[in-house]
C-alpha cells in the first residue's frame, strides 16, 4: 500500500506493507535514520516521534495507520543549521555521550515543553521515564531540562 503523511512539514509517500513499523519506514524507505532502533518494543524511547501531537514510539506505530498524519522527527527540530534551544541546552550541559538515545530525548523534550513550559523536577523525571539513556546517568540531561524549565523556553 501507499501511505502519505506530512513529515517535518513536507508531504512524503512511501510504498509499504501495512504492518511495517513507522520506524522502519522512516529509516529504510524515507532516509530519516535519526530515529533509532534500539529495542523495537517500546521500552527505550530512542525512536520517539510526534504523530498528530502525540509522542509515540515509532517502533510500535503501524505505518498503515499513519495515512494523513503529521509527523515530527528529530530531523525536524533544528532550524536549519541552528540548533533548537532544547538541543543547545543538552549540548551545553554535556547531555550527549554515545548519542543513540539523544534523538528520543530531543523529541520528548520538544513534546513536553510545548505542553508544559515549566515542569517541576519530578514531572520531568516522569515525563522522560520512557527514554532510556545508558551512558549519562541522566544527570546532564536533567540539568539541561532544568535550565529550559527555568528559562520558560
Amino acid at each position: 500500500m501507499i501511505v502519505t503523511f506530512t513529515i517535518n512539514g513536507e508531504e512524503r509517500s512511501a510504498t509499504v506493507a501495512g504492518w511495517e513499523s513507522l520506524l522502519t519506514v522512516l529509516r529504510d524507505n524515507l532516509g530519516l535514520a535519526g530515529s533509532k532502533n534500539a529495542c523495537e518494543q517500546g521500552e527505550c524511547g530512542s525512536c520517539s516521534v510526534i504523530v498528530d501531537g502525540a509522542n509515540l514510539c515509532s517502533c510500535l506505530v503501524m505505518v498503515g495507520d499513519c495515512e494523513g498524519t503529521t509527523i515530527t522527527t528529530v530531523e525536524g527540530i533544528a532550524h536549519g543549521s541552528v540548533l533548537h534551544p532544547i538541543q543547545q541546552a543538552i549540548l551545553d550541559e554535556g547531555g550527549v555521550q554515545c548519542g543513540f538515545c539523544t534523538p528520543g530525548f530531543v523529541i520528548t523534550a520538544a513534546h513536553l515543553f510545548a505542553a508544559n513550559p515549566n515542569p517541576d523536577e519530578e514531572a520531568m523525571r516522569e515525563a522522560f521515564s520512557g527514554n532510556i539513556c545508558r551512558c549519562t546517568g541522566y544527570g546532564a540531561l536533567l540539568r539541561a531540562f532544568d535550565r529550559l524549565a527555568g528559562d520558560g523556553t
Partner: peptide, 11 residues
C-alpha cells in the same frame, strides 16, 4: 563541547 554533538542532536 563535543565535536560530534550537533550531528548527534540533529539525528
Amino acid at each position: 563541547p563535543r565535536p560530534d554533538g550537533v550531528a548527534k542532536l540533529s539525528g
